[in-house]
Amino acid sequence: MKARINFFTASPATMKAMLGTSEVIENTGLDHRLLELVKLRASQINGCAFCLQMHARDARAAGVPNEVLDTVSGWREAPWFSERERAALAWTDHLTRLGEGHRDDEAEYDQLAAHFSEKERTDLTYAIGVINMWNRFNVGFRHEPE
């Protein structure tokens, strides 16, 4: 596939704002490993090859083992995800799949609330929204992995 446009040069102000949102997420205090797992999971669901490659690379650089990265899509069955990570991944799945129909999310939210403060829940939800937005730019404009 050939990229449709270079959205960075097409709208520098928009991309500056997008990069700013990503910087905010990195400074929330949420664990870097957790953020990379969430970004990978949303990108898997959305089929964003660019983000998958980038966040897998970033996670490896942060010391996340390959066996963990290899099983993000099967996080429910893999033994090495903490309960906190499972709560974040369940919330990621739920929010990334909103278009598949609303359902009762009490179990996911209760699990999230058991492991994250109100600030952390807010910051995590923001992070999930931002990676979904990046996925839409990269998939929509066919931004290929490097």
Rank of each mutant, 00 (worst) to 15 (best):
R4A: 03
I5R: 10
N6D: 13
T9G: 02
A10T: 07
A13L: 12
A13F: 10
T14D: 09
M15Q: 05
M15D: 03
K16V: 10
K16I: 08
M18Q: 13
M18A: 14
G20Y: 09
S22A: 12
E23W: 06
T28P: 00
G29I: 05
D31S: 00
D31R: 02
D31K: 04
R33T: 05
L35M: 12
E36C: 14
V38L: 03
K39E: 13
L40N: 00
L40E: 02
R41L: 03
A42S: 15
S43I: 01
N46E: 14
G47T: 02
C48D: 03
F50T: 14
L52E: 01
M54S: 04
M54E: 08
R57V: 07
R57T: 09
A62T: 06
G63F: 00
P65Y: 03
P65F: 05
N66G: 11
V68N: 06
L69V: 12
T71A: 14
V72E: 03
S73E: 01
R76V: 14
R76E: 13
E77C: 11
A78V: 13
A78G: 12
P79A: 04
W80R: 14
S82L: 05
E83R: 01
R84K: 14
A88V: 01
T92L: 07
T92M: 06
D93L: 00
H94E: 10
R97H: 12
R97G: 14
L98M: 10
E100R: 05
G101H: 05
G101V: 04
H102S: 15
D104K: 00
E106G: 06
E108V: 05
E108D: 04
Y109A: 12
D110L: 14
L112T: 04
A113L: 01
H115I: 01
E120A: 08
R121M: 15
L124T: 06
L124I: 03
T125F: 00
Y126E: 10
Y126L: 11
G129Q: 11
G129K: 12
I131T: 05
M133H: 09
M133L: 13
M133F: 12
N135K: 00
R136S: 09
N138P: 08
G140P: 07
G140F: 06
F141S: 10
R142L: 00
E144C: 09
P145Y: 08
P145F: 07
